[in-house]
Simulated assay, not measured.
Amino acid sequence: MNEIHTHLTACAAEAARVTRAITAERLAGPTGCPDWTVRELANHLVLYTAHGLEHRALRTELPAETVGRDFTADTDWPERYADRLDRALAAWAKPEAWDGDIDLGGSEMPAPEVAGMLVAELALHGWDLARATDQDFAVPEETGAYLLDVVERYADVYREYEGFAAPVAVPAEATAFTRALAASGRTP
């Protein structure tokens, strides 16, 4: 297995753990993401880090009915999310998933770069969801270092599309994961 798959797996396990601890009562609560409730953030996470992760590996489009779905309407949504993450990770475990480019709707990017951005999606929105529901989100130091590299490489693009806020200052001795959160505009 390659290094990026290892980081995807670590972040997916942590995101699944966080979602399993979210009660139905928490879904209407606020998050640190402007204008998103816990439910909206959870749906975004499920759509793009499970369904989207799998479809990117398979080079297929997300079905239209999946895009507008409220995954959290199902009482067992955390388990379904974990199962879908497992499917997505299995799709990325195939060597051919890493070959060539992936169409991003008008532009193409090498598969490993897309996978790196999906690591960021899992880690950053997983952390957002954890924070909104009074939980921690932890990744191995190597995953934090990888995430920091991805965030720094793509920060300007994400800011252009309002996916990141301005960077936040953190102490120099902060972990790589904390620095990645801060570089993405989150306040760790």
Rank of each mutant, 00 (worst) to 15 (best):
167 P>C: 07
5 H>C: 09
97 A>S: 13
71 F>S: 02
78 P>L: 08
143 T>S: 15
109 M>V: 13
103 D>M: 07
104 L>Y: 01
172 A>S: 07
175 T>V: 01
64 A>D: 15
118 L>M: 15
68 G>Y: 06
40 E>P: 10
180 A>E: 02
30 P>Y: 00
54 E>N: 07
186 R>G: 00
1 M>L: 11
35 D>Y: 10
145 A>F: 04
180 A>F: 02
2 N>P: 08
80 R>Y: 00
6 T>D: 06
141 E>L: 09
143 T>D: 06
53 L>D: 13
181 L>N: 02
111 A>S: 13
170 V>G: 05
46 V>R: 10
69 R>C: 04
122 L>S: 05
169 A>N: 10
47 L>V: 09
130 A>G: 11
41 L>K: 12
31 T>F: 12
100 G>K: 03
54 E>M: 09
102 I>Y: 02
79 E>I: 04
22 I>G: 13
121 E>V: 06
134 D>P: 03
118 L>Y: 02
12 A>D: 13
171 P>R: 04
9 T>C: 11
20 R>M: 11
98 W>T: 10
186 R>M: 00
111 A>Q: 05
113 E>M: 13
121 E>L: 00
107 S>C: 04
64 A>P: 13
86 D>E: 14
103 D>H: 08
153 R>I: 04
4 I>C: 04
155 A>L: 02
124 L>D: 01
100 G>W: 05
67 V>S: 12
129 L>N: 08
120 A>H: 07
128 D>I: 01
68 G>H: 08
100 G>C: 06
170 V>W: 02
99 D>Y: 02
127 W>Q: 11
31 T>D: 14
181 L>A: 03
173 E>T: 08
79 E>R: 10
80 R>I: 04
82 A>L: 04
168 V>R: 07
140 P>C: 10
108 E>P: 02
18 V>Y: 12
137 F>W: 04
161 Y>F: 12
144 G>V: 02
125 H>G: 03
124 L>V: 05
76 D>V: 00
81 Y>A: 04
96 E>P: 06
53 L>T: 14
60 T>R: 15
25 E>Q: 15
137 F>T: 09
161 Y>M: 10
123 A>Q: 08
29 G>C: 11
10 A>S: 15
62 L>F: 07
177 F>R: 06
185 G>I: 01
134 D>V: 07
171 P>C: 02
142 E>G: 05
19 T>E: 14
115 A>V: 03
21 A>R: 15
8 L>H: 01
26 R>S: 14
84 R>V: 04
118 L>E: 06
112 P>E: 04
86 D>F: 01
178 T>V: 09
120 A>R: 12
71 F>D: 07
181 L>T: 03
179 R>Y: 00
68 G>I: 08
157 V>S: 09
27 L>T: 13
164 F>V: 01
6 T>V: 06
166 A>R: 10
46 V>A: 15
84 R>Q: 14
40 E>K: 14
182 A>P: 00
60 T>W: 06
33 C>F: 12
7 H>M: 10
62 L>N: 10
75 T>W: 01
